[in-house]
Amino acid sequence: MSAREEILARVRAGVGKEDAAGRRITAESWLAARHCGPQPVIGSSLVERFRSKAESLASTVATVVDLAAVPAAVAEFLALNQLGTTAVLTPECAAGDWAAAGLTVSARSAVDADLVGISGCFCAIAETGTLLLLSGENSPASVSLLPETHIALVPVGRIVATMEAAFALLRAERGTLPRAVNFVSGPSRTGDIEQTIVLGAHGPCRVHLILIGDIA
């Protein structure tokens, strides 16, 4: 008997039920129903909540009124932190006028030598101050992972309340999952040496969020 058959036989014996077909229909209807558990009620505005949670996770946040203002905001952040003028960005972000802001950008996957990575996001989650990034040819995951500094562009209209709301949006707009759905909440961290928290474990040491849009 194969390992699969043997394990499933053991599981069936443990479960101790007949009618696999009927139980399968019940399971599939549970999948279709997508019941949600208790969710927080986000009292303040989604943008405010997202911003305060992101800052509490050691991200920095800037705001711009529209997309055209993004390259200048990025340049300002890089200059302020002495991070140079070169960046790798996800192809989804390539269309901005980066040269006008004095930045040299290349749209591709990141490599080890890249110090600054700029990405968009699929959406953002107010509850926890989290970015939701989808892998794809136009949004390679390495850009938010390998460089020491990750700058993410977050249109305020893409901020949703909870992880459940993000999944609903994902189903509505995409239908299927890409290879990687990455929820990113601030710079990487470790507490493995004497329980002391250090920012910048393997991923970025610095996460800067640029909120785009009309922020009341």
């Binding site: 989804e92 699929f122 794809g136 040819e137 136009n138 707009e173 785009i212």
Partner: peptide, 11 residues
């Protein structure tokens, strides 16, 4: 991820 369009709206 090959051939997939921009995953969802870009900024």
């Amino acid at each position: 991820d090959v051939g997939a369009l921009t995953p969802g709206p870009s900024p």
